[in-house]
């Protein structure tokens, strides 16, 4: 199926990706051809089929609810682009 440029722009907004108008044009064509490829799925008869989310039949393990990790905030924040007093800095959100 083919995608319109408006749909592409909406998807890019949902995915939080900024792009130039030229890029948007190019992506619209490419995504349309990818969606044509995946449209083959509609041929398959799947009325009685259970969807499979995961390759192994397993349930999530549980562990005792105790502290196992030490606080490593300084280490993790050492790779952050902008921190102050142990907090991550972002542009002002609330006026």
């Amino acid at each position: 199926m083919s995608l319109t440029i408006e749909q592409l722009k909406q998807v890019a907004h949902l995915a939080r990706l900024e792009m130039t108008p030229d890029q948007a044009d190019h992506y619209t064509q490419q995504l349309s051809s990818i969606l044509d490829l995946v449209d083959q799925l509609q041929q398959a008869k799947t009325d009685q089929v259970e969807p499979m989310a995961h390759p192994l039949e397993m349930s999530q393990r549980l562990r005792p609810d105790t502290v196992t990790e030490t606080n490593q905030r300084d280490v993790f924040q050492s790779v952050a682009p902008s921190v102050e007093d142990g907090l991550y800095v972002v542009p002002k959100v609330i006026e």
């Binding site: 998807v11 949902l14 992506y27 995504l31 990818i34 995946v38 398959a44 499979m52």
Partner: peptide
């Protein structure tokens, strides 16, 4: 970027059943 957008599209409202759920069934 292409793959993030394809993923966002197939998971979005109105397309989830036709694409994502159908793909999980074919995976089975």
């Amino acid at each position: 970027q292409r793959r993030i957008m394809v993923g966002t599209y197939v998971l979005s409202h109105g397309y989830y059943d036709a694409y994502y759920l159908q793909a999980q069934k074919v995976r089975k």
